[in-house]
Amino acid sequence: LEARLEQAAMLKRVVDAIKDLVQDCNFDCNDSGIALQAMDNSHVALVSMMLKSESFSPFRCDRNIALGINLTSLTKVLRAAQGDDILTLKAEDAPDVVNLTFESPESDRLSEYDIKLMDIDQEHLGIPDTEYAATITLPSSEFSRITRDLSALSESVAIECTKEGVKFTCTGDIGNGSVSLRQHTNVENDAKSVDISLTEPVALTFSLKYLVNFCKAAGLSDRVRLCLSNEVPLLVEYGLSNNSYLRFYLAPKIGD
């Protein structure tokens, strides 16, 4: 494997966004790119990352390899990279280590690190293609604000999507709160628009602790997509350039 990223910031942000949910992960490398799928310890949330080969320049992967990496270790090493450094990942066939180099675009500084790999026995997760009843695309900063504000009051949020719009509601010891958003097109800045596409009304409840955690990915994309259907996990997607993405899935809370 040899994969060169123009900006180390992308990988730094991706790892930062997932490291509190999952610890030891396989980075599955093949000629289409680098993928990661892992459930959190409690088995109610799932992270799915896809960095397509087009996101790297150049990208070369001659044989499929799984790089078992501890994300705490990776975070320590990535801390040594500046956001605008050029980052290159390298691994041999049947590797013991993954090699990372950080090149400063302005100076002749080159740093190089090896991270020891681990054997991770991870079951393959067959994430199904799902037709969702409701899809909401909104500014990622808005979603972060809603989850942060409501998490101050309660552990859970009810998300209700109808043709009127989407409503986030919480109930806690000190009182209750809600935020409603309507479909809205911002003609000056499309990134600020709220798009809602609905085939049937949906109402589901989720743990805010996880949603707040997912919002650590907000720096990766101006927009976030929420996909909901009754009785299936919520999909929270941050799209990256070149069709790469970071997706989070969270099972709804169900009453009796």
Binding site: M39, S42, H43, E231, Y249, A251, P252, K253
Partner: peptide, 14 residues
């Protein structure tokens, strides 16, 4: 939490 885990299992197993 058991319900949530089961929802995930059904989702992933199709």
């Amino acid at each position: 939490k058991i319900f949530q885990q089961q929802i995930f299992k059904f989702f992933l197993d199709g």
